[in-house]
Computed example of a mutant assay.
Amino acid sequence: MKKQLAAVFASAIAATGLVACGNDDKADDATVTIGTTDSAKKAWSVWEDKAKENGINLEIENFSDYNTPNQALTQKQIDANLFQHLDFLATYNVKSNSDLAPVGSTEVVPLALFWKDHDSIDGIDGEEVAIPNDPTNQARAINVLKSKDLVKLKKDDVAKPTPADVDTEKSKVKLTPVDAAQTSTAYFEGKPAIINNTFLDRAGIDPKTAVLQDDPSDPSTEPFINVLVTTKDNVDNENLKKLVELWHTPEVQKAVEEDSKGTSVSVDRSQEDLQKILDRLEEQNK
């Protein structure tokens, strides 16, 4: 009888152990912390749900500015971030002597010119165009205007032009660099303005009313591919790769389309391709 009771007791312990292990496995789903500046957008909640379905607990940490997410990642306070394009990342890496790296791509959001009560650039000659004054958006804005010969550069091979590179006598418009947050103010004052999506959304300006924008399929927009970023020693992390894959699922892409009002263009480039672009951009920034 004692032997039988011992056997039953042992079996019960084993069974309990198996149940406990099963629960632990479920509780031990991978947790990934990602920093962003756009956590309120619908795409993030849909992405979080898709991650959960695939065994990844996605913890989203929102930041109020564009500098802190990279600093937090460098200090390994978070596992990755998703808020920036390659050109911004290249500038950060060079200035801070960091080696943050892209895991995968998400989309390109066109940078566009808006002109209140106009549906084309007809009649824009002689106008003052407000452009963002931060280095990355300023250079991109000048290239948008250059694409339609609204500005001429003193030298065409300048990758990141500034107003000093513009030949004012040969240009059709004048440039007025302002803080990016003030570009929408200029628009409402009746001036043509190049406004990025963040401030379009805040000002309630319909992205589809743009009179001119850059072409996401053109190689010149490669620097502006948005990327999921991590530390150099973590680029092969399978959970991060899976998150990139999940970003491109129909459910998340539908939410991205809603968030951007149909302006975002999905981009799915390999980690190797993205790193090559980043290396080139970093070289240009040195």
Rank of each mutant, 00 (worst) to 15 (best):
M1P: 05
K3C: 04
L5M: 12
A7L: 09
V8P: 02
F9I: 05
A12Y: 06
A14K: 03
L18E: 00
D25S: 11
D28E: 07
T31G: 07
V32K: 01
T37Y: 05
S45K: 09
V46A: 04
A51I: 13
K52F: 00
I56K: 09
L58F: 06
N62Q: 01
D65N: 15
Y66V: 12
T68S: 12
Q71S: 09
Q71D: 01
L82N: 03
Q84K: 13
Q84N: 14
H85D: 04
T91C: 11
S96F: 05
S98L: 11
D99P: 03
P102M: 11
V103I: 15
T106C: 09
P110W: 08
A112R: 12
A112E: 05
F114W: 04
F114Q: 08
W115K: 11
G123H: 01
I124P: 14
E127N: 15
E128K: 15
I131W: 00
P132V: 10
P132I: 12
P132L: 02
P135K: 01
P135G: 06
Q138I: 13
S147L: 03
D156G: 12
D156P: 08
A159C: 10
T162F: 04
T168H: 11
K170V: 15
V178F: 03
T183S: 14
T185S: 10
Y187L: 09
E189F: 14
G190A: 11
K191G: 06
P192C: 03
T198Q: 00
R202Q: 11
A203T: 14
T209D: 07
V211W: 06
L212G: 06
D214Y: 10
S220K: 12
S220V: 11
N226Q: 08
V227Q: 07
V227G: 10
T231N: 11
K232T: 13
E238Y: 03
N239C: 07
L243T: 00
W247C: 07
H248T: 00
P250V: 13
Q253C: 15
K254C: 03
K254Y: 05
A255F: 05
E258A: 15
S260Y: 04
T263G: 00
T263E: 03
V265K: 06
S266T: 10
S266V: 12
D268M: 10
R269T: 00
Q271D: 07
E283S: 09
Q284V: 04
K286G: 06
